[in-house]
Design a protein around this nucleic acid. Structure first.
Lengths: 230, 230
DNA sequence: CATCATAAATGAACGTCATTCATTTAGTGG
DNA sequence: CCACTAAATGAATGACGTTCATTTATGATG
């Protein structure tokens, strides 16, 4: 039933793919950068459900086992993807702009990037920074910004971690279905909650996840900003 | 190699298990509550890696397929577990105490419960509240507390969502390895970050995750509290 | 130029899981 | 007493991640 079964003989066949060969190719077909880009494309096209080692190998015209010459596990690929995505997070304003706006830019872009990649969050959250150079570079830029803004050294990391925790949680929230708060048949037994949900729906035309993110971020900005020694 | 293989014949055998039978037993062996408790025990003993439908069935002296008469998928079991765990989250103070302390109690207990169950977070974050009655009850208690504390109706849900996002993200952070911020060989190229990490380690004797959680929570309390109309 | 170690690919296993299904059985309502 | 049905079995299925023996082109070495 599989493709391999229906085209059994002749591994040199150029009918299926002119570039397919056996043994070492003219130049290495694979490397980590190529795998990362292919993974990113595949995820974009098929989502994380369709993201399997077999599917990834297929887009690279390679056998699944070939991938293991360049990465040691699927998790490894996810780490590569994560680190690549981090380069799309906007830290520019930390170099010059005012602290509050820099954090705003950073936080919104960080959330937006990873709300499309929530399956990476369990990976990031526990990943030693040394394993992801671009992620480390992001932390350096952010830390520098906090330092310049007058934060006491020992508060910088906790403040960043707190913001990041909020961002990761919010990335999940941004993917929640619109009717997540519909209490259905139990509405009558939860009057306070139900009326709060209704009032939100009536009053606001923005996406609920954006309202919550904005509210929380501004609260954190105000609270954390108070730590600065001007 | 499996137990089934090594004890092939006679399903009525009482040697392996005196209670094992074929067909409908005197009373149903399984129900959702029993499955939930068994799942919780299994997770406690073997973690989420060891939590498989086969392992769950084994602890219940039942074939894996039998579970599917009571739940429709493994995810279903996770939802049941999640809802059960939610009953351990402390919402008592919302009924009487001052708002700030109620939120503190709630947030810390919420984080503590789910930091031991982070694989549930992707499930919770996207789960319609109607599918988890105890979770819905928690929201009702919290909403009531916010209402009583003088929050405008349309801000209650966003405020709760913001707090919850922070709590979920912090639950992940609480499980991170201690050396997560060790920048290793790249330390010299990230001076700001590295010195901030060092200063934190020197100054604080508490767990870094707790410092960050406290810092973020107090900032959110201050910022969100300002929304109240006394 | 011959040879040789090696990087890098293949494809055929494996083992683990969740899930499905035909079948069997034992209570229960008519 | 009988038909219905809830609830269990265990065998089968199909993904999927990963391993491994094997093969081969390539570049370095002599």
């Amino acid at each position: 039933m599989t493709a391999a079964t229906s085209a059994p003989a002749d591994p040199h066949s150029s009918a299926t793919n002119p570039r397919r060969r056996v043994g070492r190719p003219a130049a290495a077909v694979l490397d980590q950068a190529g795998i990362t880009l292919a993974a990113l494309q595949l995820i974009g096209k098929s989502g994380y459900d369709g993201f399997t080692m077999a599917a990834l190998a297929r887009t690279l015209n390679v056998a699944p086992s070939a991938l293991y010459n360049h990465v040691s596990s699927k998790r490894d690929v996810l780490v590569l993807v994560q680190d690549h995505l981090t380069s799309f997070v906007d830290v520019a304003a930390f170099e010059s702009g005012p602290w509050e706006q820099a954090v705003r830019d950073w936080a919104w872009s960080y959330r937006d990037v990873f709300s499309k990649h929530t399956p990476l969050i369990p990976v990031i959250a526990v990943l030693p920074v040394a394993d992801a150079p671009r992620t480390l570079a992001m932390y350096e830029a952010v830390s520098a910004g906090f330092s310049r803004a007058g934060f006491p050294q020992e508060r910088i990391i906790p403040a960043i971690v707190a913001l990041e925790s909020f961002i990761f949680g919010s990335a999940y929230d941004a993917t929640a279905p619109a009717d997540i708060f519909d209490s259905g048949s139990m509405a009558s037994s939860t009057p306070n909650f139900t009326s709060a949900v209704q009032r939100l729906a009536e009053d606001s035309h923005e996406k609920p996840a954006d309202v919550a993110f904005s509210l929380g971020l501004e609260a954190l900005l105000a609270g954390l900003g108070a730590l600065r020694t001007a």
